[in-house]
Design a protein around this nucleic acid. Sequence first.
DNA 1: AACTTAATGTGTTTAATTTACACATTAAAC
DNA 2: GTTTAATGTGTAAATTAAACACATTAAGTT
Lengths: 246, 246
Amino acid sequence: MPNSDQSLQSAAQKSLRIIQSEVENINKIALSVDCVIFGFDESKLKVLLIRSDLKNYHGKWSLLGDLVFPNEDLDAAAYRILKQRTGLSDVYLEQVHTFGKINRHPAGRVVSVAYYSLINVQHHKLNILENELHWHDVKSVTDLAFDHQQIFDTCLQQLQKRVQEHPLGFNLLPRKFSLRELQNLYEAILDIKMDRRNFRKKFFAMDFLTDINEMEQDVAHRPGKLYKFDFDKYEKKKKKMSGIDF
Amino acid sequence: MPNSDQSLQSAAQKSLRIIQSEVENINKIALSVDCVIFGFDESKLKVLLIRSDLKNYHGKWSLLGDLVFPNEDLDAAAYRILKQRTGLSDVYLEQVHTFGKINRHPAGRVVSVAYYSLINVQHHKLNILENELHWHDVKSVTDLAFDHQQIFDTCLQQLQKRVQEHPLGFNLLPRKFSLRELQNLYEAILDIKMDRRNFRKKFFAMDFLTDINEMEQDVAHRPGKLYKFDFDKYEKKKKKMSGIDF
DNA sequence: AACTTAATGTGTTTAATTTACACATTAAAC
DNA sequence: GTTTAATGTGTAAATTAAACACATTAAGTT
């Protein structure tokens, strides 16, 4: 159950009350950040949601968001908010889109900048503070608070597009991983099945994987080889990529 | 020369003075929009710039921007600002990125949402109002006011990426156009040379061009055939596009 | 009228990339 | 020892992209 304790209310709510009282202020647009944190967990793509404690959306799930301070960079605000609400700090956030419909937020005019990231659920411990915080299967996400469904959809599309443009996700796997684990990751993000042989061919051709001559342990089937990602090689090749393709 | 007449100052400047006086207001972030309007003109890619009338950047060129009103949608603000500053109204704007460094604007904390578009210079008359407004060759754009150089660079990259993902630019050409004109457009945007035969092959394969059995007139060489773009066919095929490509 | 100029229109071959597809192997679980 | 559930491997076919040259046309020039 959501614990909508007054004393633990978010900065957003406090500030919004102030905003609403300043009717004639020309500068009455509040700026917020919403973070869409995707998590890879046992071959499933999840997203981190929190219960809304605003009256209008009481009980609904929402993204991790709060107001930007006047004296902090926008990107810094995103990292701060994520840290405050989840304890996560070693996470790379990327800006996606800014949502600015007049009535998107019930408490007043709030324009929100959406950021997203993708992490491994197993590698990050969450500090659950004032509200319920849960990993949800992305496929079952519906009916979020505010316009968060739209923000979520936009970020998921962005993630899917991104993963097709650049190899991604090596921070999500253990340092040593099998090709099956890598393929699971891609299949989870893109929500498609891929041919194992072609997938391996493609990744080996990219030449970013180093065979470390170890095998999986304790799997209930033939163990696979383990690889690690060569970040240096990747950085070098990344620059060359280009091409025209309609 | 720039005419920095007090009475014609932009809403941005007026509002910023108000903002600066309200030191203790928690909500002292101002929100603005900057429009990067690319123009295709005689085989060259241009961008529409205006002289800055702010002291710190007096005389420098800048993007078309102003503050968002509290009671208008973000997208609507972009269209309004473009209309006010240029007279342009039948232009499609697309949001690209939001820039939110603390000190990006000398007059106070202003977070700016960047939008871009691409139009045909010949098809749009500009209403030049308070400031100098000029089409600049994109290749010679340097040293813009504020962080506008960065915004411009980001939008140009976005345009180039966009044009490689979806056929684009049919609103930029005359209704009837030759393949050479189409190729000029792509070469101007991407700043590369393309093989004529392969270019034609690619576009004909896409099957969006209709041969209208007319020829160019009054050209000082063998006249080319004219085509029109089949928007219906395009809309139908667009949905199918997908694919994994690292 | 003949010549020059500057562009159009056209096809093929080669290389590269992507897709489809099947079977023997291995380690653990029972 | 048998079953289970996965790994590892190669090739052929189809598609897509890239490289490349010459005859044609209309206007402009002399």
